Amino acid sequence: MSGYKTFAVAGAGTLGKFIISELLKEKAAGKIDKVVVLTRSADNSFGDAEALVVDYSSPEFLQSALKGVEVLVCTLGTTALAFQEPLAEAAKAAGVKLFIPSDFAGYPVGKSEGLYPIKNSYRDMLDRVGLPWTTFATGPFGDWIFYEPMFGYDLKNGTAEVGGTGDGLVSFTARPDIARFVAHILTTVPASELPRKIFQMEGERISVNGVITGYEKATGKKIDVTRVPMDVVHANLAKGDFKAFLQFVFETAGTTGPAEDMNVDWPDFHPMSVVESLLANKD
């Protein structure tokens, strides 16, 4: 066991709510003692977790909120990534022992497209602050992204906007599976083996075309696919368009590493396939 007993999660939305749920299961099983949730909304309920409405502009508040916390997990979304810096500084001052940056949904190390340089810069920032970190390479959230029209996919309503051929292989992992993996690693791997470690997971390695075909077969629904040429994708990517960034990744650089390196830190992981996770997602 890691020996860590107190955890905080910053961000309780798209992914954070699943990680909170898994940590609370570990708490109910007696493996950990405390789960704190840093949230910007007082309307959310997190069961047996201690919820604190956060003020990221107040170092004193953040340091107080993190007092006694050993592991801080950040699941902040794209527009909130900058909050990781004041969080890290407060965490260092509060005595937090391990920081999990919001590197989920991709493998940013050594990459220079889209959000990757930004995420790499925050890991560098943690080194400057002197705060040990662990990160998780998950690939895109397979149970969610294909139901999000803002990303070009709306399989529930029968449409998909695919960049390039759609044949590029991608490492997709469903959010419930990511949460299980993160909670398992943080509560079972010895604390001495966690700093500066990148844990690679994968629910299923499959192309966008493969997902669409599998979804059509499983549901009997025909998906109307719009194809976007890669020159258009590159042009939109140069403008900072996030949908184009996803199309680029899915076509050219979608896996988080060699297949033999996936899930090796938890051989009994057994994640869902993308289609299984889509059918299980009732949201």
Rank of each mutant, 00 (worst) to 15 (best):
P101E: 09
E276K: 08
E148G: 00
S45D: 13
G210E: 01
F250T: 10
S102L: 10
M201D: 05
N120V: 12
S45C: 02
I118C: 11
T6I: 04
E276Y: 01
G11W: 12
I118N: 11
E50D: 09
A49G: 09
D283F: 00
V35Q: 05
E216P: 01
S121Y: 06
T138D: 12
L186T: 00
Q63E: 14
F269S: 00
M150F: 14
F250A: 08
N236Y: 05
V73T: 02
R205Y: 10
I206F: 07
A280Y: 01
K119L: 08
A218L: 01
A49N: 08
Y107F: 15
I178M: 14
A137Q: 12
V264G: 02
S102R: 10
S273D: 12
L246V: 10
G254A: 02
N120T: 12
P140F: 09
L38A: 02
M262D: 12
V274H: 01
G163Q: 06
I19P: 02
V208A: 11
K222I: 00
A244N: 00
G257N: 08
T39L: 04
A160Q: 03
G166N: 03
K31I: 11
V109C: 07
L131D: 05
L278K: 00
T188F: 07
S207N: 07
D55C: 08
R196N: 14
G158L: 04
S58W: 03
V96M: 08
L38N: 02
M262G: 08
L15F: 08
D33F: 00
V189Y: 08
K239Y: 10
E276H: 12
G95P: 11
G106Y: 06
V35K: 07
E113D: 14
E70P: 02
A218T: 04
K67Q: 15
P267H: 09
P258A: 03
F99E: 05
G158V: 06
I100W: 06
E70Q: 13
K25S: 06
V71L: 05
G114H: 09
T135Q: 15
L169M: 14
F46V: 08
N44T: 13
I19Y: 00
T39P: 06
A174V: 00
S45R: 14
A49D: 07
L186V: 00
S64Y: 02
N44M: 07
L81Y: 13
A51L: 08
G16C: 04
P258M: 05
F104G: 03
P190C: 06
K97W: 01
T213V: 10
A179H: 11
A238Q: 15
V54A: 15
N263K: 13
S277G: 11
S112H: 13
K217W: 00
F83Q: 15
D55N: 15
T39G: 13
P271C: 12
P117I: 12
G47E: 10
V35H: 00
A191R: 09
K5Y: 03
V225G: 06
M201C: 13
D167G: 04
E26G: 01
V233T: 13
S273T: 15
W133K: 05
G164H: 03
W133M: 06
A65F: 05
T188V: 02
H184S: 09
T138P: 14
Y215S: 02
G77K: 01
K27V: 03
A93M: 06
P271W: 07
A93H: 08
Y215V: 03
D261F: 05
P176E: 11
K222F: 03
G163M: 06
L155K: 04
L115A: 14
T226W: 04
